[in-house]
């Protein structure tokens, strides 16, 4: 239980004060609250959204159990909470709604503005718990469970399975695929039309930092890329060791290039 992470990307929203605004990351523990809005001396906010269409106190986020609640302080505007991985899945939080529970692990909170643009920020809830696959469902509260759980339908899980594939197939005990190799391997997956290298890297960071909380050995002087390689090797080593990714998960990946290669050749 480490709470949620709120991320406001750098840019037009002008958060953080100066023009352009720096990216803001907030971490909230269970029971903690972050207010968002345009802010002012009399209504301070933790997350400043610099747009004149947004109220001084537009709403608040409260961490509850393993999820979070959104309160909409606007009297006229609805806010949208989108699940970026949910193929269009979203919730509408109407004006003055207090404490709407948000069930997504990944959310984008979208506030309307007067222009055609919107202001949005992201909320991650990495603590969502999944039952172990062999649980019988009764009295799971007193059961011994794996303390790190992964959503096996998520994109990060797909990336993780692709990372583990060579070792699961006992092809190479050492090599962990590189980011371009992952992009290539996942190409053609129906849910992943436009998977970019940047997206793969951020999924890996999310897994390592927020989900598994990997203790990376301090390696000074290493280039960023080398550090990232170390991280992905550790990640693969430990999800395999603790059985979080198993042979049966290979079925989630698209058919292997080896088997489909000839067909693709022909199509070209």
């Amino acid at each position: 239980m480490s709470g949620v992470v709120i991320y406001l990307p750098q840019g037009k929203t002008g958060a953080g004060g100066g023009p352009g605004g720096d990216a803001v990351t907030l971490r909230l523990g269970p029971g903690q609250v972050a207010r968002f809005g345009r802010g002012s001396a009399t209504s301070p906010v933790e997350l400043r959204l610099d747009d004149e269409a947004i109220s001084r106190l537009a709403g608040e986020i409260r961490v509850t159990d393993d999820h979070w609640q959104l309160s909409n302080h606007s009297t006229t505007q609805s806010y949208l909470v989108e699940n970026p991985e949910g193929a269009g899945e979203y919730l509408r939080v109407p004006p003055r709604r207090a404490g709407a529970p948000i069930p997504f692990e990944f959310s984008r909170v979208v506030l309307p503005t007067r222009r055609d643009t919107t202001v949005s920020f992201q909320v991650f809830a990495p603590d969502h718990v999944y039952l172990d696959p062999d649980g019988t469902g009764d009295q799971w509260g007193s059961r011994t469970v794996t303390a790190y759980s992964l959503d096996e339908t998520s994109l990060y899980f797909l990336v993780l399975v692709a990372l583990c594939e060579p070792r699961l197939r006992d092809e190479s005990p050492v090599a962990v695929p590189t980011t371009p190799e992952i992009v290539e391997r996942l190409q053609g997956h129906p849910l992943l039309g436009r998977l970019t290298a940047r997206a793969v890297s951020s999924h890996i960071d999310y897994l390592a930092d927020e989900k598994m909380r990997i203790s990376a050995p301090a390696e000074h002087g290493l280039r960023r890329e080398a550090r990232r390689n170390g991280k992905r090797e550790t990640l693969v080593g430990l999800v395999l060791r603790f059985g979080l990714v198993r042979e049966e998960h290979l079925a989630l990946l698209p058919p292997r290039p080896g088997t489909g290669a000839r067909k693709r050749e022909a199509a070209r």
Partner: peptide, 21 residues
């Protein structure tokens, strides 16, 4: 230890514990 346990009996520091191989 393996990263397993029972929620009601895990000490609070486990909620933030890092995982190594």
């Amino acid at each position: 230890a393996p990263p397993m346990g029972t929620f009601d009996y895990l000490p609070p520091e486990r909620g933030k514990a890092t995982l190594s191989e």
